[in-house]
Design a protein around this nucleic acid. Sequence first.
DNA 1: TCCGATTATTTGCATTTACAAATAAATGAA
DNA 2: TTCATTTATTTGTAAATGCAAATAATCGGA
Lengths: 150, 150
Amino acid sequence: MNPLDGYLPYLLNRAGARIATAFCEEVRPLGATLQTWRVLAALHERDGRRMGDLSETTSIEVSTLTRLVDGMEKKDLVSRRRDAADARAVTLHATPAGRRLTRRLLPIAERYETVALAGFNGAEAEALKAALRRLYANMEALEKPRRQRG
Amino acid sequence: MNPLDGYLPYLLNRAGARIATAFCEEVRPLGATLQTWRVLAALHERDGRRMGDLSETTSIEVSTLTRLVDGMEKKDLVSRRRDAADARAVTLHATPAGRRLTRRLLPIAERYETVALAGFNGAEAEALKAALRRLYANMEALEKPRRQRG
DNA sequence: TCCGATTATTTGCATTTACAAATAAATGAA
DNA sequence: TTCATTTATTTGTAAATGCAAATAATCGGA
């Protein structure tokens, strides 16, 4: 086994890249991209999120997200609203067309999870997910200080 | 727990993104990027790799890699050679400056592994890595057919 | 109330990226 | 040997990306 095969960030990256590439290719015929899926999935989980929230949830840098959302708005997948409570903020909402696209993407996304975890039993799958959540939490220590947090 | 927190591709992506972002930022003062590190690490493991091999190892798309290598060559970190055995192919070699940079990056990379896996015991860490290798292998099924492979 | 500091988002701009097409070389069958 | 096919890399080009600066609004203290 090569040294890289024992290096966690490498294993993480190549696994993520493989899922991402395949998913991208598969949803392209539907007029979707991986990034639009990420936004739609985040809104499916909770609609009306702010840009900053969406950025953190999707791991898409805010300025990139702004332009991605511009495009999604033009396609009538989402709509921006000024946040009533805080006029600095913008909330994002899936439109009916956005929800329709989400419903088409959901089963594809589920299939990716199934394929990725083929041969894993329930406990193994849950252990992997738990480990990834721990890892993510561990890395918060090296995050650029945004607000104070902890 | 939100639905996304149970979705593996999401967990994978956000963990990878967090490591990537922090690493990027940290190596920037050294004049390096995450992508140059990936190339150097692959060459550190085995020097004289072909572009295609490097692309697969680093998960960097070949045409992107070509231009990345252009830049690294200008910085005298690597050099291209025509493969003696097959003149279609190009092999890439770390230069002394490239190896010096690699030596500076290695301890940083090691620290990322340590931070990421803080609180994991040896068995847990190895289980995570093994799971990521399995996952990567599972996803090969959905790869765009390159050569025949299995 | 007014103002400086903070927070949320967008914009400017240079790079990076990816798909597709082009180039270049090897390979194998006729 | 010749040529069509396959393989390896690069190039054309448009889009995506990310940092830094700009804009816009809130907040809290004087």
